[in-house]
Design a binder for these strands. Structure first.
Lengths: 306, 306
DNA sequence: TCTATTGTTGCATATTTTGCAATAATGATT
DNA sequence: AATCATTATTGCAAAATATGCAACAATAGA
């Protein structure tokens, strides 16, 4: 029994409060978790977890030990990372959570190139537009798009994106073209479920102002809304990294060009409770450099309307 | 591969500068040490030890890692000990170095009883009258007899012993009985090789004074000298725990009763570089209690000469 | 040059670990 | 109250891993 692995499992079990969840997260059989923890307990001669089939709770010994384990594991992480610090080729496994649209459209090619350049790296991607808890989820890294950071997050900004209000030419021909954000209430606008969905924000005179919108379609996928807009169903406000392709292909037109929207930040977020391994930092630096300070997707703002 | 075990082996290899020595000390095959360290190196992606078949030296990464390993291992020790701290039955392995005479005559029965009372304890004894380095030797504990502590030793006094000057009645009949330490120069006295061997110390008026001795037999075993004294070959100065039995059986007589000798301390010495496990502390307390403040062996000082 | 010892490797054998399936226990739901 | 779904645990066979031994190559000392 590898005591360090056992400790790792024990810590996760304590954090998630479930053997099964840990087993799933770590890609091992439930029995492994059971036996690893049992092995630890046998080794220590103490019960660590009081388990009733449905709920777990820490023994007092378990609570003490949990803290020590955390300390030890982070020390081990630091020790192992500290060596290969620079110059060494990054290696190991990366478990990343990231948003669907940005992840699939923009990040995937970067991951592909990164993996080609670093054959000793393996990557596990969990796409999700929810802000999953990094620690509970056992992730090494999260990529998030947001207009501001959650307080307490340990993050590195790796890029940004503007947003654009877009609609298909067919829609515009039928319903006219809004000239000012306050016109949006008269239009068929799509709300993004994970944000405020009944109004859109614009920056006017340096201040963020919210304007109510009209519309009957909400969804929790920017891609879906974009598809609807392309079909001519209405207007959507999308980050440039989503709208980019459709705008270039003239399937969508950018509206309200004179009213910029708040910039979205693209962040790499680290779990706050442990040492950031070398491989994580290397990947994040790579992404930041690939995205650059003037992201490709924002270039569509400069396209001349025909 | 258990990383903690590997780290332990690596640390020992670095300390002893030899794979073979570690293998012997830890009771495993040389190949195990090789592969464990190699495994660590593979895991880290760095060479830790530069090995030329005859001499080892740490890589710079190795040196860094060594320190971290020490820290981690002592933390693990502390974590594992800290739980079962009190009330729990001690368990695990004890590697002890101890002197021949005292160890065999006095300590063995105590160890026996201790093991009977603590069936989860296993003990490995390395008898030696040399002051072996606790850390290099990989011992959990050393028992030492000395009139004073080496500076820097982390020790607990677990008892004491007086010394007595003794000779067989046959010898005394032949050569007479010394009345004062200064008479010893005229007698056949045995020198203990591991101490100052040409003079003996006595406490007179509260001060330690040294008196030269005559004699032609030196040895590095108090038992051997005692045997020689019993044969009537001469006079020896022995700790009471060695002379006890022979004196009780009237095979030897105590001389110079009015001239006490410096008290010998019996010490338990701990390796200074790591946490003292529970089992070690329990054993030491047990020994201290068994020996007591008025050790049995010193009782022979009160026997009336016939 | 020879020798003794060291660290490494191939190989057959033990040992351990793993996942799957079955079991028993328990909280939630109907 | 009874059923249900899910949980942690265990038996078992297969897979993976570690072990010791012996042979080997390298090296410092005689």
């Amino acid at each position: 029994m590898d005591r360090l692995d056992s400790m790792q499992l024990f810590v996760r079990v304590a954090e998630l409060g479930s053997f099964a969840a840990v087993a799933q997260q770590m890609h091992v059989a439930r029995s492994v978790v059971t036996r690893q923890v049992a092995g630890l307990e046998a080794h220590l001669g103490t019960k660590l977890l009081a388990r009733s089939t449905r709920r777990l709770s820490l023994t007092s010994a378990g609570a003490t030990y949990l803290e020590k384990c955390r300390e030890i594991l982070s020390l081990v992480d630091a020790a192992e990372g500290g060596l290969t610090e620079d110059s060494q080729a990054p290696r190991g496994h990366l478990r990343i959570t990231l948003p669907f649209s940005f992840g699939i459209r923009q990040l995937m090619p970067m991951f592909g190139d990164f993996m080609k350049a670093n054959p000793e790296i393996s990557i596990e991607l969990e796409f999700s537009d929810r802000r999953s808890n990094l620690i509970e989820g056992g992730f090494d890294l999260a990529i998030r798009i947001a207009d501001r950071l959650d307080p307490g997050d340990v993050a590195r900004k790796i890029g940004s994106s503007q947003s654009v209000v877009v609609a298909a030419p067919a829609y515009l021909k039928l319903h006219g073209r809004p000239k000012h954000p306050r016109d949006l209430i008269q239009h068929e606008c799509f709300g993004y479920l994970l944000a405020a969905r009944s109004s859109w924000s614009f920056v006017i005179d340096g201040e963020t102002q919210w304007f109510p919108i009209g519309g009957k379609l909400d969804a929790n996928s920017g891609d879906a809304l974009l598809a609807a807009a392309i079909q001519g169903l209405g207007i959507t406000k999308a980050p440039t990294f989503i709208a980019e392709e459709a705008v270039r292909e003239r399937k969508l037109e950018i509206l309200l060009r004179k009213f910029p929207t708040p910039e979205l930040g693209i962040y790499a977020i680290f779990p706050s409770n442990r040492y950031v391994p070398h491989r994580v930092r290397v990947l994040v630096e790579y992404l930041a450099q690939r995205i650059g300070s003037q992201p490709r997707w924002d270039a569509i703002l400069k396209l001349r309307a025909e």
